[in-house]
Amino acid sequence: MRVVAVIPAYNEASRIGLAIRDALAYVDAVVVVDDCSQDQTFAVSLAEGAIVLRHVVNRGQGAALQTATDYALRFLEPDVIVHFDADGQMQAGEIAQLLEPIVQGRADIVLGSRFLGIEAENMPALRRLLLRAGVIFTVVLSGIKVTDSQNGFRALSRKAAEDIRITLDRMAHASEILDLIKVKSLRYEERPVTIRYSLDTLGKSPSNWRALGIAKDMLKKKIVR
């Protein structure tokens, strides 16, 4: 089974090396999409052995994920694509748990969750509250019940990767993926994953206001587009 990890990255030169090394220990190839970083993200990723693509204009995390997926599907013949982060918050050692339901043929997509027993380290209380609200929002808007609607750690079978096309370029892609799981009637499971927040990653991650942006983008997609 050929597993490809895809990593969207923006100004992650200081952390992406570790994330790539970590991922490469568990997957066959890592595709990084440098989303027009101003630092050495591209060079560092290349040096660490990843296949690196570069957006010449910043298009957002969702767009970068789709670019990496398109590349992988066209040239790498993956059986499974794993969405992984550049900032070291995710643990590549847990990829095997995400693969298991796909390997067993029970699921088309496996979603990581911070609320299935493994306590996320150093998660701010407000973030926790917003994530809970996100779960309710997802049930109402997309009719799909998950415990963590904004977790970026997930594994997609080739079929799911081909079926799910991310069109929301910025941060709302996690909600859009859940919406498409429902629309395309894909089989999904959740698995507990460990997310380690640190002062460094919290400092760089978008503010809690992004929750409003995600809700706005999803509503716009549902109602207007």
Partner: peptide, 18 residues
């Protein structure tokens, strides 16, 4: 226009890497 721009940026990235 934004969608078209993303697709253009995407194709450039994929072609260059390939």
């Amino acid at each position: 226009l934004s969608d078209e721009m993303t697709e253009l940026v995407r194709q450039i990235a994929i072609e260059k890497a390939h």
